[in-house]
Design a protein around this nucleic acid. Structure first.
Length: 322
DNA sequence: AATGCGGGGCG
DNA sequence: CGCCCAGCATT
């Protein structure tokens, strides 16, 4: 059976990861939120810093939001950090700090969707429910040669049904860990290690290399360009920053007031920043403080260091251009 | 069903 | 350069 092959592969090849050595739902929750759309290598140091700074859900709930977002800085998708903090406060306030213990309750938490709820419910509470992430979609679509669009709910439902069948005869937590690890290490998006694959004999897409085109994605990613203009005001050793509040990129983080100035003291070299679906052209202008008509708060460089900022702003300041 | 949300790494 | 990563919320 496929699932037993993958599980025994997992038991021999699994990486040692800190969130695998605990059944504390709080730690597992933190790790799963961090790992949404994020590689293990990138998320690992953030997880270590979070659990060191906030050993319990009470510590996280008591922290100021800016501090949580400062810890999140550089990881992206900042609504994850805001939701993490909000949900910690909610659980402390309404559940005495006790993490909910069923899939149905867990999925009602902010920032927790079907994948994350299944992961927490199976890892922390051994609930029998498949956690289906990008790895699992890829692994199953290849093994069973499912060529319908992976980005369609119908196809994903089909894969869910298969995963529910596979998980029914094995340890659910081990199964979920094994499927994801197998996708991350063996059945990789590019150049999968088919020659040493324990599932090769079952894999319907191996004989004619159909796996090269699986999973099949119907939609293409399109990159849009966007220009940002920043006005830098300095009064002595203080700079004017404002917190982004609208529903836009970098919500809740601090940056300079936006806008193209009429006059300016100096223009800095334009920075180009590549994001997933966007290319940012960023212009910085040093402006005359007497012309300042923008909202914001004045901060010293030492204070700015403690504020959560977008990567581009942090890079700019770190280069000591101002 | 479609779109927006970051940043990093890889071929 | 395009694609993908232990996805989710909003519309």
């Amino acid at each position: 059976m496929v699932q037993n092959r993958i599980i025994s592969w997992y038991l021999q090849n699994k990486r040692s990861l800190p969130w695998r050595n605990t059944e504390n739902p709080y730690f597992i929750w933190i790790s799963e939120i961090i790992l949404q759309q994020t590689r293990v290598a990138q998320g690992l140091p953030y997880f270590e810093r979070f659990v060191a700074q906030y050993p319990t859900i009470f510590d996280l709930a008591a922290a100021p939001e800016d501090e949580v977002l400062r810890l999140w800085q550089g990881l992206g998708y900042y609504s994850r950090g805001r939701n993490l903090h909000q949900t910690a406060k909610y659980i402390v306030e309404h559940h005495k700090g006790v993490f909910p213990n069923s899939y149905q309750e867990i999925i009602s938490l902010k920032g927790v969707g079907p994948y994350t709820a299944a992961a927490i419910a199976s890892f922390a509470f051994k609930e029998r429910i498949p956690a289906i992430d990008g790895n699992v979609l890829r692994v199953i679509s290849r093994i069973l040669r499912i060529e319908s669009p992976i980005d369609s709910p119908v196809t994903q439902k089909e894969i869910r049904n298969i995963a529910e069948e596979w998980i029914s005869t094995v340890e659910p937590d081990t199964f979920n860990q094994a499927m994801m690890e197998f996708g991350a290490i063996q059945c990789t998006p590019k150049a999968p290690l088919c020659e040493t694959c324990p599932v090769q004999v079952y894999c319907l897409s191996y004989p004619d290399k159909a796996y090269l085109n699986l999973p099949f994605k119907a939609k293409k990613t399109k990159i849009q360009e966007r220009e940002l203009y920043y006005k830098i005001y300095r009064k002595g050793n203080q700079y004017l920053l404002k917190q982004r509040k609208n529903s836009d990129i970098w919500k809740s983080l601090y940056d300079f007031p936006e806008g193209k100035p009429e006059t300016y003291l100096k223009e800095y070299p334009t920075a180009t920043h590549l994001l997933s679906h966007r290319k940012l052209q960023i212009h910085f202008y040093a402006c005359e403080p007497s012309e300042q008509a923008d909202e914001g708060t004045w901060f010293t460089l030492d204070e700015i260091e403690e504020l959560p900022k977008p990567k581009v702003i942090d890079d700019f300041i770190r280069k000591k251009l101002i």
